[in-house]
Design a binder for these strands. Structure first.
Lengths: 346, 346
DNA sequence: GAAGCGAAAGTGAACGTTCACTATTCTGCC
DNA sequence: GGCAGAATAGTGAACGTTCACTTTCGCTTC
């Protein structure tokens, strides 16, 4: 579109100064605070800025000030699923007067580490919050440049951030189910490359042990609905569990479908729990008991750590609960006939 | 972490030059291509770079070259739902040698327009792809700076991008349902602030007209499952539709639930279609007929337009189908008893 | 009425690169 | 041996800001 002649130079501070009949430094002051200037001067600069359509070149500014006002959140594309986490991060950054950008990374740990370092030291951002795990000892490679806050508990397979691996709700789910009378459980796990999947599995096993329950096993899974269907189809008819803890809602819906295909009623014959509070959960027949995660809060707190690290203001972190179990129709005491579907949406 | 003394200056090209015993320009050349240098010189610079841990300051570089190699995708946070769209955009940008960043905007049209202009003219990015609609005539406000490609059909309420408003699958759905024998339809619409919702509604009405079908009405909705439930509950028993076109999968699942609550069988008494191909769709009882959208392709093409606008290489666009109807259990000829896979639901 | 002071404005040098030149060295050829 | 021409390297000026000073001016104050 643009001709190759004269790359459409934008007006600079000096041109504004000339037009306003002042020095460039005066315009700089005007830009900075509009204070300490004579009203008449102010007005003339106003006019010149308007006339030229001047806008400061942020790149030049940051070059001089060594501050960009920009933060980067690096994350693997797969985690974009957690859009609400981003949403919280963006809001917190904005509050602290920063622009938050999202940069994606792919490839091996080494590649990703390199990419993050490059970004941190490119001078293009003040800080980098990496939701991707990096080669150990990266801190030492950093010449005190942009602060990189690697969210601490992000795991090797770059899939989960600290608070997301909190699997305590599994315990809550199982204690309640046990109280309802369930004794025989099944866990359909998520992809074990993910820290959160490992955490849930561990919490399941721990709860079985501690509460003296019986586990018919842990079905390997990959977060897919199919893995849920299969796990149920493979169950031994002589030793069916009465409750299934699924790694997430998709898996849980697969479990429900598998149960139906085997002629099992949910929750009559089988109670099922999910994880994530997928929008559809409430409307499934039966509506799904699940775990809601406050992703906005998690995102906010991660960015707050970063802002603090780059010397920004200390803002109020989200301190409320991060997870919450939502009980719905898919869980009930064992052996009872299923309550009629119209027994209520919640 | 960082002490307040001496802001940790990073080594510059000149320091590398001094250490290597060459001029700064030689180092610059080294950085640019590593060509036209004596092997011995190359080696010495290599050593110096290594020793100092030097990395070029991209900000200073872009200041001189007036090129940043960075593109920004501006989008409202709500659209982060379309993570797969981003994924396509990022991949295309990478292919063309650009870094793609995601910047979010909120607020009124005026605020957003301002924000986008600021970004475009800040010198921090080469191009801006705005998925947010902006005040008309913005092009004229742009002094040929960074190219802003407003995705053309993005609507006033900043919710949809051109290809996403393609509602032709609605026609496909209805033609097939009509062929199966359906005559009386209901549409549960999405929030009419969204262009895509308006497009689907319009396509529904057009199809009713053209195919000579009967419509029991268009239920206003807001993309929520509740709106689906309510739409069904409010239906006149004397004049029930046999097919429901829901604005998306969540609404559709609400419709299914509402139908069950009224004792209607899906698809026996009522065929239901959704939109989006939500992961859970396949596992619902009954699995949901829906429309899959190739968001990656849409994102890729949008970024390709931008890259072309900023004078980048012309890459292969995604030219395959953008939408695809997926037929599943929730649709069947009217009046037939449900082909119950297990009869398990009731 | 001159010294003192504060407000307002100006001057020139940085920031870390690359660009456009110019200078030097090497090579091969007559 | 001298010279053209390429290959290699160096010099200084940009890029658009802000920082650290300096200057100018007008007003008190004694």
């Amino acid at each position: 579109m643009t001709e190759h002649s004269a790359p459409a130079r934008r007006p600079t501070i000096k041109e504004v100064a000339r037009l306003a009949g002042v020095s460039h430094q005066t315009v700089s002051r005007y830009l900075k605070s509009r204070q300490g200037l004579l009203p008449a001067t102010l007005e003339r600069i106003d006019g010149a800025v308007e006339e030229l359509g001047y806008r400061p070149n942020l790149m030049a500014r940051s070059m001089r000030t060594r501050r960009t006002g920009r933060l980067a959140v690096v994350m693997p594309v797969t985690t974009f699923n957690h859009a609400r986490l981003l949403s919280g991060a963006l809001a917190a950054g904005h509050e602290a007067g920063h622009v938050v950008e999202v940069v994606s990374v792919e490839g091996s740990t080494a590649t990703r580490t390199e990419r993050v370092l490059e970004l941190a030291q490119s001078g293009q951002v003040d800080g980098v919050l990496s939701l991707t795990p990096m080669a150990a000892g990266i801190e030492h490679g950093l010449p005190e440049g942009a602060a990189v806050v690697v969210s601490p508990d992000f795991d090797d397979a770059m899939r989960s951030i600290g608070e997301l691996t909190d699997a305590s709700p599994v315990t809550e789910l199982m204690e309640r189910l046990a109280a309802l009378g369930h004794r025989r459980f099944l866990h359909v796990a998520g992809d074990q490359d993910w820290a959160s999947a490992r955490a849930r599995k561990a919490a399941y096993l721990e709860a079985v042990e501690r509460l003296g329950l019986e586990s018919v096993g842990v079905a390997e899974g990959d977060w897919s609905g199919e893995s849920g269907v299969e796990a149920v189809m493979r169950l031994d008819s002589d030793r069916l569990p009465t409750a299934v803890i699924a790694a997430n809602d998709v898996v849980a819906s697969g479990v429900v479908r598998g149960a139906h295909e085997r002629g099992l009623d949910v929750p009559g014959d089988l109670s099922v729990t999910g994880w994530d509070d997928n929008e559809l959960c409430r409307f499934l027949p039966p509506s799904l008991t699940t775990v809601r995660i406050n992703l906005e809060g998690v995102g906010r707190n991660a960015v707050l750590r970063l802002i603090k690290a780059v010397g920004g203001p200390e803002l109020e972190p989200w301190s409320g609960p991060v997870t919450q179990v939502i009980w719905r129709e898919s869980t009930a005491p064992p052996g009872r006939p299923s309550a009629s579907p119209s027994a209520g949406t919640r």
